[in-house]
Design a protein around this nucleic acid. Structure first.
Length: 461
RNA sequence: UCCCCGGUAGCUCAGCUGGUAGAGCAGGCGGCUGUUAACCGCCUUGUCGCAGGUUCGAGUCCUGCCCGGGGAGCCA
């Protein structure tokens, strides 16, 4: 195998033979010399391949090269006399592997992200999307590393679920019934009993309920996988298919969970900064100047914890002309979240103990009977980045909350069983993976931080 | 789903209050240069999103539709 350009550029010293394989970003011809910017995606920088009339294939290959074609060059790594790179590659042979005609869509100029989305099969070859994909990779691995070192087991929660009551938005139906002529029962309704699973099934909107099963056996688990929402929401923050990280831990209370979330963010961000230095420098320079600073704030500053009640008082006393009202029982808007973390605290903020009426049924009810043990982690620039809670582990309280919200306890029979047999306090949080990639990279649209975005009306590639 | 904005050359965009389409980049040719999204000169490229309508005349105004972007709601 050829050495990657990342490794080649990272060599201690020049000298030595090598092979460069990759795609041509641009080519500059001089009278007796040509410079090929060759990228193989292994790092931000490409390798400057230098060819001259002594290079085999100079006239019939090198002089004919164009942006986008793939090449293989054999030669030697030498110190570069030019500015802009430490090493360059002096080719003795250059071969064309795959040509790219003049209609190659990616030019050596800036393209709009909107246009790049229409050529998602080629956009990973751009600087920005390439860097995004490398950051995604580094962040994914850091997430696994973090949980492994914290003794969390990676639990594979299901993609297909029969529960249509997870309560987190519209779901995609999964069926093998013939769509034009489905079987009917005696009343003329579609006969779900004849469907593949014998009942209606959907793509999961959350692995949390199953993660709780895992936590109440292995003590600490996390799921990290695709999640689906059929909401018709068309924003820079929503995808129909996205990746979610959901740790769940037995014998954790809300404080333990807040501690975990703080360690988690600090660890993952530090790893990404360390392993994607060039990519992050690119984002800070070309996409969002605060990208690295924001991450460093999370890494360096202790998170401040503020109960919701107190947060509301602070916001009310702030004198800030907010667009949306503040008051007990009202959810915090993005503008409130950002003011709390950016102006008030100057560090990430964890808002705890929220009014039960605006939170989900499975959250632990506090002794005041008005609030639940929920938390939102707020960071500068985006607001909420993590949401979690201690779960209600008391059977009677959970059953009455389910009924109180008009839900049917029988639909949750196994979830309630977990409270019947060896129930323990436990807690967990969820975070949208693409949201933290957005936070890290400063990319404005979530469709540009996932390789193949799925949004309403869009499932190409 | 609602509100706002937009859809003009392969790409990024300009085109004022209606008068019949332009720049940069890409591409072609030539020049020059150990070059750095190289540079200089010349040249080519358009069903102006689609369908109607108003008008002597529509890229420009009106209506509908499609697509995209921003904001909102919902959320992760």
């Amino acid at each position: 195998m050829a050495e990657s350009i990342r490794r080649m550029l990272g060599r201690e010293t020049a000298g030595g033979e090598g092979v460069v394989r990759g795609w041509l970003r641009t080519v500059r011809h001089g009278k007796g010399v040509s410079f090929l910017d060759v990228s193989d995606g292994s790092c931000m920088d490409g390798m400057q391949v230098v060819a001259n009339p002594d290079t085999e294939g100079y006239e019939d290959v090198v002089r004919q090269l164009s942006t986008g074609c793939s090449v293989e060059a054999r030669g030697a790594v030498v110190e570069s006399p030019g500015k802009g790179q430490r090493f360059e590659f002096h080719a003795t042979v250059v071969e064309l592997v795959g040509e790219a005609g003049e209609d190659y869509p990616l030019q050596k100029k800036r393209h709009s992200f909107e246009f790049l989305r229409t050529i998602a099969h080629l956009r990973p070859r751009t600087n920005t999307i390439g860097a995004v994909l490398r950051v995604r990779n580094a962040a994914s691995m850091a997430i696994h590393e973090f949980f492994q070192q914290e003794d969390f087991f990676y639990l594979h929660t299901p993609i297909v679920t029969a529960s249509d009551a997870e309560g987190a938005g519209e779901m995609f139906r999964v069926t093998t019934l013939p769509i034009g002529d489905p079987p009917r029962d005696e009343k003329g309704a579609i006969d779900d009993a004849q469907d593949f699973f014998g009942r209606p099934t959907f793509l999961t909107v959350s692995g949390q309920l199953e993660a709780e099963i895992g936590a109440l056996a292995l003590s600490r688990v996390y799921s990290f996988g695709p999640t689906f929402r059929a909401e018709n929401s068309n924003t820079a923050r929503h995808l129909a298919e996205f990746w979610m990280v959901e740790p769940e831990a037995a014998f954790y209370d809300l404080n333990d969970l807040a501690d975990l979330s703080e360690r988690f963010l600090k660890f993952v961000f530090a790893k990404v900064l360390d392993r994607c230095e060039d990519d992050m420098a690119f984002f800070a320079k070309r996409i969002e100047s605060e990208a690295i600073n924001r991450m460093n704030t999370v890494i360096e500053k202790p998170f401040e914890r503020i109960p919701y009640r107190e947060a509301v008082s602070i916001l009310e006393a702030s004198g800030e002309p907010f667009e949306f009202p503040v008051g007990f029982g009202l959810d915090l808007q993005s503008e409130h979240e950002r003011w709390l973390t950016e102006k008030h605290a100057g560090c990430p903020v964890i808002v705890t103990d929220w009014p039960k009426d605006i939170k989900a049924f499975y959250m632990y009810q506090n002794d005041d009977e008005q609030t639940v043990a929920a938390m939102d982690v707020l960071v500068g620039g985006v607001g909420e980045i993590i949401g979690g809670s201690q779960r209600e582990h008391r059977l009677d309280v959970l059953e009455s909350t389910i009924r109180g919200q008009g839900l049917e306890p029988d639909d949750y029979w196994w979830y309630l069983d977990l409270r019947r047999y060896g129930s323990v306090p436990h807690a967990g949080f969820g975070l949208g993976f693409e949201r933290i990639v957005q936070f890290m990279t400063g990319m404005a649209n979530i469709r540009d931080v996932i390789p193949f975005p799925r949004t309403p009306g869009q499932a190409d590639f």
